[in-house]
């Protein structure tokens, strides 16, 4: 019986590259959550003149494919301009590792999301985002794409976990199709809050469960 993982995944799992943090990073991101069982953290250093990723480090909490994709993404991004790095897809990352078992593709999605988030963080901090967009339903949805539905390993929008989003007087209310006593209820709530609270025009995030 052979392993479900490619040799390259195993190799990176055993000897991951670019592990750690960067002192005074230009951009950081933390995607996933311990509740979902996988999490990737990225730190970036960007050369301001060339807009190239000078250095990138990762940390991973998760399974073998999580560690391997976290590692490969740092190698793929290093030396690229931020615009080119944004174009990296989860499929490319998975291919670079010789493929992933289907059930583990979300690990690659997570790693790519972390990279995009770290770049976005850099851009926001360095005034590279054109103007501050106010939080609309569409903007909120874009942010919620980064919240995993632990039941399926896909995001909460794709899996129709989010029933309703309402924005009123700087309060955003997200209604989720989960009972309050569901095993994942509090984890999903925390994740949703984490993604929406940093919005500049939002003062409070309310998560409502199914009645």
């Amino acid at each position: 019986m052979s392993s479900p993982y490619s040799d390259k995944v195993i190799e990176y799992f055993q000897n991951p590259k670019n592990v750690g943090e960067i002192e005074n990073p230009d951009g950081i991101a933390k995607e996933g959550s311990p509740a979902c069982g996988d999490m990737v953290q990225l730190h970036l250093k960007v050369d301001e003149d060339t807009q190239k990723i000078e250095d990138i480090k990762f940390r991973s909490y998760g399974c073998a494919s999580n560690i391997a994709t976290g590692s490969i993404i740092t190698e793929m991004a290093k030396g690229r301009s931020i615009d080119k790095a944004k174009e990296i897809t989860w499929q490319q990352a998975a291919d670079e590792l010789g493929g992933l078992p289907a059930v583990k593709n979300h690990c690659s999605v997570l790693a790519v999301d972390a990279l995009k988030e770290a770049i976005r963080d850099y851009e926001e901090k360095h005034g590279l985002v054109e103007e501050q967009v106010s939080t609309t339903i569409e903007v909120a949805k874009e942010r919620l794409k980064h919240v995993m539905n632990p039941i399926h390993g896909l995001d909460v929008l794709k899996t129709n976990l989010v029933e309703d989003i309402e924005i009123k007087d700087k309060v955003i209310t997200v209604t989720v199709d989960l009972a309050e006593d569901h095993q994942f209820a509090s984890a999903v709530k925390e994740d949703i809050k984490e993604k929406l609270e940093p919005r500049w025009d939002i003062e409070e995030v309310v998560v409502k469960y199914r009645e």
Partner: peptide
């Protein structure tokens, strides 16, 4: 009891049952 170990990606209902969190 990790979710990743199982095909269903569900964490152990026993550890959650004793009040353990997902981590």
């Amino acid at each position: 009891g990790s979710a990743c170990f199982s095909k269903s990606l569900e964490a152990s209902h026993v550890i959650l049952g004793i009040g353990g969190d997902h981590e």
